[in-house]
Amino acid sequence: MIDLLIGPFADFGFMRRALVACFSLSLGSGAIGVFLVLRRMSLIGDTMAHSVLPGAAVGFMVAGLSLPAMSLGGFVAGLLVALASGLVSRYTPLKEDASFASFFMISLAVGVLLVSTHGSSVDLMHVLFGSILAVDDTSLMLMAGVATVTLLLFAVIFRGLVAECFDPTYLRAVRDQGGVYHTVFLILVVLNMVSGFQALGTLMAVGLMMLPATAARFWVAEVWSLIALATGIAFLSGYAGLVLSYQYNLPSGPAIVLVAGAIYMLSVAAGPRGGILAGLVRRRHLRS
């Protein structure tokens, strides 16, 4: 049993690195995901992830398969999309989700165009699906750095972010620049996307962000406990996904996200706060 659960990590350096990478990602993603859900921006996380692609492609064209270059490119592209969407939703009648969707489609198309004219489909697969088993020290440092920055900045903007989600007009009435918290938050979203795409790919990185957050909602009901639980679920998903991918020779990214998905389904079914079973029990209680 111990062999099964700990063996792969004891035997192989790349498995250990992958595990540390998962933990680093989870630390940032837990909080980010919870606030994305609370701000009703769940799908915006998805659009942000895709908009990172052209930047990563430009980085790849300039410097080859270099993580710092691709990350920087992705970060800049993601930031541009977030900024442009923010400006459009602020100064035109278009809602935030619609303007995000528009810019991410443009960004994604540019990305696919760049990758298909200047790279091979193998590179595209790498960016889209990542390879957590090939994480090197540089990318590990990047992920740990992003997690650290994320947690520190979250501590700074936490009160403002909560107040701005709960009652934005009140915050504006007491002359607080609520937009600042939102902007810092969006930057953190982009940072964590970039950090995640190397390990899990742009598509799967969102999974580790959203699924633990939506699952946690069925168990607890305060912002801090949601974040703690979401981070824990992300940890567990990363670990279990890696073990499964090792034992059954599965691709690691989807394995990790599918574990998170299983935890989510279980939470929907059995979670005490709004879960389906809890609803059934309550109904029976009312009838008797």
Binding site: L38, V156, I157, R159, G160, V162, A163, C165, F166, D167, P168, T169, Y170, L171, A173, V174, R175, D176, Y181, A221, E222, V223, L226
Partner: peptide, 29 residues
């Protein structure tokens, strides 16, 4: 504000929501 302007699905305790009244003195930090 009107009650409708507030996100009542946001998980905040009644005490914390009330403490927001101090915002003009303490701000975000």
């Amino acid at each position: 504000p009107q009650l409708a302007a507030i996100d009542d699905s946001f998980p905040i305790s009644v005490l914390d929501a009330t403490l927001l009244g101090h915002w003009r003195r303490v701000g975000a930090f």
